[in-house]
Simulated scan of single mutants.
Amino acid sequence: MRTPEVGPVGSVPLVLRCGTGVLNEAETVWVAMLDGWAAQQFARNLSAGTVEGRRSTVMRFRRFAEAYPWQWTASVVDEFFLELRAVKGAARSTVLGYQNALRMFLEYLTDPAYGWGEQCWERFGEHPAQVFHEWNTARHAQDAVATPGKRPYTRDELEDLFDCADDRVLRIRQAGAKGWIPAFRTATIMKVAYAWGLRRNEVRCLDLVDIATNPRAPQFGNAGIIYVRHGKAMRGSPPKRRSVLTVPEFDWAVECLRQWTDQVRPLYAPARSTWLWPSERGTAAIAADSLSRAFNEVKREAGLDDDLDFHSLRRSYVTHLIEAGYDAFFIQQQVGHEHASTTSIYTGLSPDYRARVVDGAIHRMAAAAMTTSKEY
């Protein structure tokens, strides 16, 4: 016999046992709402990390409001985000992420298909309402929400950054301290991230087998291609994979990488470890927080601006390939952007490059004018 339909995943009949007496009815319904929303998101193939992050945001708002979702008001929204921005100094991207999560949660609760409005009205004489509107939330009006200080490094800044990282290795080693290998690891990671345009998580999760030869560019040896297996994932999708070709402008980084894999890493990594950048214990790749702390120490020692972060190495990669004359679509494929407009946001062309472009245009116009005058 066929089981009757009870509604979509996350609906009331599937997550809340109706007609059962409970000690704290409101809390029971609240927990069932969270469980139902999680089930609905998992049914849409969203990752566990995404679901848990959104759940944490909703629970944080619930604690601040000291009220259940069927009691939330627009005034509480204003108070919550005023504190988040003015008192705690949250970034615009953080605020936007919180608002999106809360808006989606209320969209789920107010959708008649899931039955929460009717259930709350029967139990509490109130029902959830959408309190996140255009007039009281931030709008995602552009592709990038980073602060204006987020930009590519200039070539001089990159030279200062890498020189400082190398000097730290020499200084620590000459002092006889054991920390020179982690310092060497940090210096090499920075150079690899820049020379192949990798994100922090992409570079730290590299494995030895992710470095391969490019038959059409044998001059780069075993580092002609880097296979990225932990690229930035789209919502509800696994990590995005891509291959990044080594380009002649960054051939110096091939030797840096070879020195690490052949000479330094064997002194540090356990025998069976395949991580390219093993942690101090050797059981996993270097942690993201550890890499960020090490990078920031080098950056501060080099005297660079705080807004210039690890991701600015990737911005520099895009910018310098454009200045070198590489095709825009090739660059887009190298960095794994879905849209060309995203790649353009990363670009911060130097004044010298722009001056050369204008100078070249002037010379072409002058040559064309001379050709025309000779014809007459």
Rank of each mutant, 00 (worst) to 15 (best):
P4A: 08
H337Y: 04
E126I: 04
M234D: 11
D262A: 13
M104L: 10
A294S: 14
V22S: 13
R200E: 07
L14S: 11
V357N: 10
W37T: 02
K191V: 06
N100R: 12
T20M: 11
L23F: 13
R199G: 13
V247L: 09
G179R: 04
A141H: 11
D163C: 12
A369I: 08
V254Q: 08
R364T: 14
Y317G: 00
I189Y: 03
K191Q: 12
T186I: 04
L349D: 05
F64K: 03
G36V: 03
F162L: 10
E83P: 07
C205L: 13
L23E: 14
Y326V: 03
N45S: 10
T110S: 04
A369W: 05
F105N: 01
P218V: 12
D327C: 14
Y326P: 10
A183L: 02
L34R: 02
A146T: 09
G282V: 11
A294M: 03
A26I: 01
N222M: 05
A368N: 12
R44C: 08
S290F: 07
R155D: 11
G7Q: 01
F330K: 07
V95F: 00
F250T: 01
W196N: 00
P248N: 10
A287K: 15
N214W: 00
E375N: 15
E122P: 00
R92C: 06
E157G: 11
W70C: 06
E126V: 03
Q71G: 03
G179D: 01
V247M: 04
F220P: 00
R62F: 10
T342D: 07
A212C: 09
S341A: 12
W260E: 00
A101C: 06
R63K: 14
T372Q: 13
I322G: 14
E255T: 06
S11H: 06
V77E: 01
E52W: 07
R229M: 02
R85E: 06
L23S: 14
A340D: 08
Y353D: 00
R199K: 10
T371W: 07
L206R: 04
R173C: 01
Y153L: 06
R200S: 13
G303F: 02
D160K: 10
P128N: 10
Q174Y: 03
R151Y: 02
L102I: 08
D163I: 02
A233R: 11
W277H: 06
L245S: 01
W180E: 05
G36A: 09
E126K: 08
G97S: 08
Y376R: 15
G348K: 02
P69D: 01
H337L: 10
N296F: 09
G231H: 06
N214D: 11
